[in-house]
Design a protein around this nucleic acid. Structure first.
Lengths: 157, 157
DNA sequence: TTACTTTTGATGTATATACAATTAAATTTG
DNA sequence: CAAATTTAATTGTATATACATCAAAAGTAA
């Protein structure tokens, strides 16, 4: 569906305005759809992302700060997300021996098992959602990377 | 910056997984940066979007449901956003005469004035953020539209 | 007309986002 | 070493998201 129909707005002042609206709308759409799948397993998108980061470490521990830096939405609150994963038995958290300010956060077997159950469903859902060929996906990735070339380094200025 | 550096993840299982992560990351980045500008004017992104919808009506009233349907993030809560705009004096809301279930929501002069102040700053910020040529922007818009062709009509199934 | 259904908006609750403030440990500096 | 600074994590607060529930008005049908 074209963006204009989806949000019932017929005109944009320029391509750039449309691109930004299009990007936010598409991201929101993917989040909504993926969220439905995750919810069946008691996970939200941020919890799922943190779990994937923990798994990506091959089960070796990461600090809360490292999690924060690798999260897609870095404004979020890694500390509280880890809290909830621990409460669910999906992650464990112990004080780091080398630096007692830090936490060693890692995924549990239960967390790994849950991810193994969820991933195929998410993959299937994404395959269903994304109507682009492999080549178009590559092109879209390049455009997105290029799009962020101007100011990204200064996010926290 | 390439996505791999931005989120410190070196590998993706396939283009599609990378595309989804890239999309969510880029959207989050734009929201963060735009949000900073809006905050200087006491606005959040959802409030700003509703205000733009009201202005787009050429100051003729819209119902809460119509606002909800035109919002980028349709899962959000138009009722409470309108509440806050009214409290700030940026919108007004009266019961619709034809259908007393509905609300006639419209932008106030104060709201219009605020938008007129904010829009040039947002445009400037977006111009600074988006590092794509006009042609590339058009291409990106087409890819995003095409990306959503598979399942979009079934969002609320 | 009453009874049932649908539509519209508001409200309640849990989770998430955004950002400031705080606390404790480590590091730097005098 | 002690004082000051920096770093890491937690906590607090306001706003937003997601979704369920509720109440009132409108529409439909017996």
């Amino acid at each position: 569906m074209k963006l204009e129909e989806a949000i019932q707005q017929q005109k944009f002042r320029n391509q750039r305005e449309k691109l930004i609206v299009n990007l936010l709308y598409t991201a929101s759409w993917i989040k909504t759809e993926s969220g439905k799948v995750l919810k069946q397993h008691g996970l939200s998108i941020p919890l799922f992302n943190v779990l994937r980061i923990l798994k990506g470490q091959n089960s070796s521990p990461v600090s809360v700060l490292e999690i924060q830096q690798r999260m897609l939405d870095q404004q979020s609150n890694a500390s509280r997300l880890v809290d909830r994963l621990v409460n669910k038995g999906l992650a464990q958290r112990v004080i780091c021996k080398e630096d007692r300010r830090k936490m060693d956060v890692s995924i549990t077997n239960q967390g790994l098992k849950l991810l193994n159950d969820v991933m195929p469903q998410i993959d299937e859902e994404h395959g269903y959602l994304v109507g682009l060929s492999e080549e178009e996906q590559k092109e879209a990735n390049e455009l997105l990377d290029k799009m962020r070339t101007k100011k990204e380094g200064e996010i926290n200025v």
